[in-house]
Design a protein around this nucleic acid. Sequence first.
RNA 1: GGAGAGGUGGCUGAGCGGUCUAAAGCGACGGUCUUGAAAACCGUUGAAGGGUAAUACUCUUCCGAGGGUUCGAAUCCCUCCCUCUCCGCCA
Length: 423
Amino acid sequence: MLEPQILRHHLDEVTEKLALRGVVIDHARLAELEEVRKQCQVETEELQNERNIRSKSIGKAKAAGEEITTQLEDVYQLNQQLKAREVQLGLIQTQLNDLLMGLPNIPHKTVPIGYSEKDNIEVRRWGTPRMFEFPYKDHADLGTDLKLLDFETAAKITGSRFSLLRGDLARLHRALIQFMLDLHTDEHGYVEVNVPYLVNADSLRGTGQLPKFAEDLFHIAEYNYYLIPTAEVPLTNIARNVIWKADDLPMKFVAHTPCFRSEAGNYGKDTRGMIRQHQFEKVELVQLVEPDNSYAALEELTGNAEAVLQHLELPYRVVSLCTGDLGFSAAKTYDLEVWLPGQQQYREISSCSNFEAFQARRMKARLRNPKTKKTTLLHTLNGSGLAVGRTLVAIMENYQDEGGRIAIPKVLQNYMGGRTYID
RNA sequence: GGAGAGGUGGCUGAGCGGUCUAAAGCGACGGUCUUGAAAACCGUUGAAGGGUAAUACUCUUCCGAGGGUUCGAAUCCCUCCCUCUCCGCCA
């Protein structure tokens, strides 16, 4: 959520910047609503003040044993006016709030300007895609041929876009999780957190999934809980409605969780394999930092995610998302894209974003400024470190051999009982 | 699931229709004293929002959340949420 004051006083600037994302602000409506709001709020508060004064004097008069009938009549008239004003103000504020909640974040000045993912800018590349001297397979064929990856059974148990892993492939999946958690806690200074996988609507509003993206979520109507689409939601909401001390920051959290996404609107997309599933697992990094440090933190967090790929020796590139491709809540995002031989292209495996105060404002996640003693909104960041299913896919495809076996990356062998191959 | 108790400012805790402008204590901050510190004493002490150029001044709202009654609600009524204790069930 953007600062209401910014919209009030710098509407032209905001309109201009959001236009870079392809968002059109109804300038005239906003300005008019704001005008009415101001008038209505001032009137309402004046009437409230008047009522408070009169009620008090009634109290005193009554205590003194005076006649209060005429005073009660006056206040009745006042209250009729006040109630009408309060209702009107409520309606206006709801409209303004709805409008505000629907506006995405303002892109940071370093974000490349563009319309679609074609305009994203490659920042750097690491590693070299492997040349195969034999007919290579994609992960779906590799896994199915090894009888370790089973989409049919998963479809029977649940439905489409679910998968079932068996044996060493299931273990490799688990090994990846362990490895990532160990790396981020031992070497990158994150605190491991085990979080709820069901969250309430307030939490989802805090991080920006609601109200606009309800159709992407699995909702348990009976309890009004939602399955988390990412650990970003529970992790970031740790800070909701709290005023933190400067000493508390930065907070760096890592969690492994399953993630649940309805994938509504992606019906024809990535239907093969386990690239896009209703349920997948992810190791998520979240940082809550002082505003001045958030861009340094974004570079650090992105580097932390990259370290996983480097240890696994998987070729990847870093892409800075352009204004048109940026997610709703993000001010700046780096995507990490891993090389997938089966698709002969780089595919997203992590998305690292700085949300600045956008989520913090929705969550009222604040920080006490030790100098001014005032509260400030803190800045929130997150990134996958990494998406486990897609990492498994990348290992399968990049580490396959001519016989359809999969070599186990060195850093994972200890987690695999010393094994070097899956066959 | 059954029975009971409770949610008040950073914390403890009083208040149970009208000077609540929320007592008191602790903590924190500032000051006096001191070579320095402690102690003692004095003072200050929340959040969100509006008007405004304003960190000046001022107004509104906030006692778990949302409704209601009333001229007036922390206080009365309704609904919901959460916490604690005991019993039952259970990984």
